[in-house]
């Protein structure tokens, strides 16, 4: 039985080899590298930037839209080759779950330090709606400012969807002794967060939402609350009591395990790719502020910032 399988395999291999004969000696396979696009601007622009870099190296690239949580399963199976924005706090869980099942590899981090944390729009502090912020202790005295109709008189934290960090924020509220004054509401998605930001601003109402940096909200001014410092194992899920803020997080890159073998050159470049906060901010601004299309924004960014990305592609660095 085994030999039959082998033979069939060999025949299949032979046929495919015959077709792809020219490229075996070449470095990268010509089959396309599949890059996922999710539903927020900086990610889509960066997808086209990464794709543009691969294309400049002679690779074929294909873009597939995918849900940002579900994509790790897709990478694992091989339908998507890479993910270039793995946010620690939001997607860490999905990423590690997929890695544990096998098929996904960690391709290093971007240099951009990220922070994903609860915070307030800066004008909330400027207006003095809750004196003492950004220190978290200030929250104890101004929960009324953050109350909403459905929060029962308590202040409301608008968290991202439960799929991002599960019980993290409710645990933190309990651990910090804020549970009598605050409740957590899970938003359905990032767009719900931005809608809340916009409506709070229009209304001049204080609001605490989950947010991250680098993000397009940086331009408007957003201040993260300073919680007790993060230490390893301080979270409830890791055995701690949960009374700590978020760590300075990483922004990782993920790839299918075959990627280094099929596209060694592209993989090397990918693992070297490292964008800074500034880079990501520029990409997002081209779309969100200059209203360019994502593709055009990527083209423009690639054209203007060759000094940043060209080194990734050069061998022997």
């Amino acid at each position: 039985m085994y030999t039959i399988k082998r033979t069939v395999g060999a025949i299949v291999a032979g046929i495919i080899l015959a077709f792809s004969a020219g490229s075996i000696s070449a470095a990268d396979s010509s089959s396309p590298i599949v890059i996922p696009t999710h539903n927020w601007s900086s990610q889509v622009v960066m997808a086209y930037v990464v794709g543009g870099i691969f294309e400049s190296m002679g690779n074929n690239v294909e873009y597939k839209s995918a849900d940002s949580q579900a994509v790790y399963e897709a990478i694992r199976i091989g339908d998507v080759t890479i993910s270039h924005e793995v946010w620690q706090s939001s997607f860490g869980k999905s990423f590690y779950n997929a890695m544990a099942k096998g098929g996904v590899i960690d391709a290093g981090s971007h240099s951009a330090p990220t922070l994903e944390e609860m915070g307030v729009p800066t004008w909330v502090i400027d207006k003095g709606l809750c004196p003492g912020l950004p220190n978290w202790e200030a929250l104890k005295n101004c929960h009324k400012a953050f109350a909403t109709a459905d929060s029962g008189g308590k202040g409301r934290w608008l968290e991202g969807p439960q799929s991002w960090h599960g019980q993290l924020m409710p645990d933190r509220i309990n651990a910090l002794g804020l549970d009598s004054k605050y409740v957590v509401k899970f938003a359905g998605g990032a767009d719900a967060l931005w809608a809340e930001l916009a409506s709070a601003k229009k209304e001049g109402r204080a609001t605490i939402i989950f947010n991250w940096t680098p993000n397009f909200t940086d331009a408007e001014g957003f201040t993260f609350i300073e919680f007790p410092e993060y230490t390893d194992g301080c979270r409830k899920a890791d055995g701690g009591d949960g009374s700590c803020g978020s760590p300075k997080g990483w922004l990782k890159k993920a790839a299918n395990y075959k990627f280094p073998k099929t596209h060694p050159a592209a993989y090397t470049a990918f693992s070297r790719m490292s964008f800074s906060t500034q880079d990501i901010g520029q990409m997002a601004a081209l779309v969100d502020i200059d209203k360019m299309t994502h593709k055009d924004a990527a083209k423009k960014w690639l054209a203007d910032h060759g000094d940043v990305w060209k080194p990734f592609t050069q061998a022997g660095m």
Partner: peptide, 13 residues
């Protein structure tokens, strides 16, 4: 619904 959305990232989604 929220749990269904959450299932997208669950280990046993």
């Amino acid at each position: 619904g929220q749990f269904i959305l959450k299932a997208l990232s669950d280990k046993n989604g």
